[in-house]
């Protein structure tokens, strides 16, 4: 099974060979223009999300308060990105929706890594039964459509961002377990691990002292590259009404809400869609650059 790859990870590169330690040359890295631009976008959106109540022109509307006096207004000085069918300021809702994307994405990626990495380490290091069991379970979860998991969860605990995030973590962590497992198996055959074993160091010492640092880099790149898919996945569930619930803002949900007005008021659906595209693109470019740099 070691030959299956998560679509965007390109983890084969990330995990390829064992890598030499290298001093971090932050400045050289940031000199690359695209990476700097991407980082800027990420920082700006994150700041906007964190300080949403201060950034949003109409914080109440961002949280869902209706404003029937100004329904379906086009772009103007008062409403930079126009208003939706309830008269709510789209920019304010974008700012609040960014919270869902950024923090939801962060949570999914971290949780998937926190579950997947230890299991992958265990599976790879002990080989034999745990490895088989973990990869089998992973395989089953991966072939289970997240949408169905989301439905199952929403029928039990109700629809909401929490359900969506849980539904996405369940089929997500096996990717981490799988790739780490492969990585451990490869590293184990490397000379320095064998040398450590011959020198009489214990299993857990080797695991934490030698394998973990090597693997951390792979995990970091994976997490960064996973941010985009995680954000899109939240959006996909939001679009189906299985994520954030109205009247709260969520970019996927906003596209869904705006879609019926696409012909007459295209700005309602296009702004959140474009925001999502820009954020994901920034993550991807930044992740690519980081990876190139680490692979050097």
């Amino acid at each position: 099974m070691k030959d299956e790859l998560k679509y965007k990870h390109l983890a084969e590169q990330a995990a390829r060979e064992h890598r030499r330690e290298r001093k971090i040359r932050t400045i050289a890295f940031l000199k690359r223009k695209s990476a700097a631009a991407a980082l800027l976008v990420l920082v700006l959106i994150t700041l906007a999300a964190v300080f949403a109540p201060l950034v949003a022109p109409y914080p109440d509307q961002g949280k869902g308060a209706v404003n029937l006096g100004e329904r379906l207004q086009p772009l103007s000085g008062k409403h930079l990105l126009g208003t939706d069918t309830f008269g709510r300021d789209i920019l304010s809702r974008l700012v609040y929706g960014a919270r869902v994307s950024i923090f939801g994405g962060l949570f999914i990626v971290c949780a998937a890594a926190l579950i997947g990495v230890p299991l992958g380490l265990w599976a790879g290091y002990s080989e034999g039964a745990p490895g088989v069991v973990i990869s089998r379970i992973g395989e089953i979860l991966i072939s289970f459509p997240a949408v169905l998991i989301a439905i199952a969860i929403t029928t039990v605990i109700g629809a909401g961002l929490t359900s969506a995030v849980i539904a996405l973590i369940i089929p997500w962590w096996p990717w981490y377990a799988r790739i780490i497992q492969g990585e451990v198996l490869r590293l184990k055959r490397m000379l320095f691990v064998e040398a450590a074993q011959m020198l009489g160091y214990g299993k857990s010492y080797i695991l934490f002292r030698h394998l973990l640092p090597n693997i951390m880099r792979t995990v970091m790149v994976m997490m960064l590259l996973d941010f985009g898919p995680a954000i899109i996945s939240i959006g996909l569930l939001g679009f189906l009404g299985l994520g954030t619930q109205p009247p709260n803002a969520d970019w996927g949900l906003m596209v869904w809400e705006g879609a019926p007005n696409l012909m007459q008021q295209p700005w309602i659906a296009i702004s959140p869609g474009a925001a999502m595209f820009i954020l994901v693109m920034a993550f991807n470019i930044f992740g690519d650059n980081l990876q190139d740099y680490l692979d050097g």
Binding site: V66, T85, P246, P247
Partner: peptide, 10 residues
């Protein structure tokens, strides 16, 4: 219904 609900909430 999806349009009524936010108005009632408000």
């Amino acid at each position: 219904e999806t349009r009524m609900a936010p108005l009632m909430k408000d």
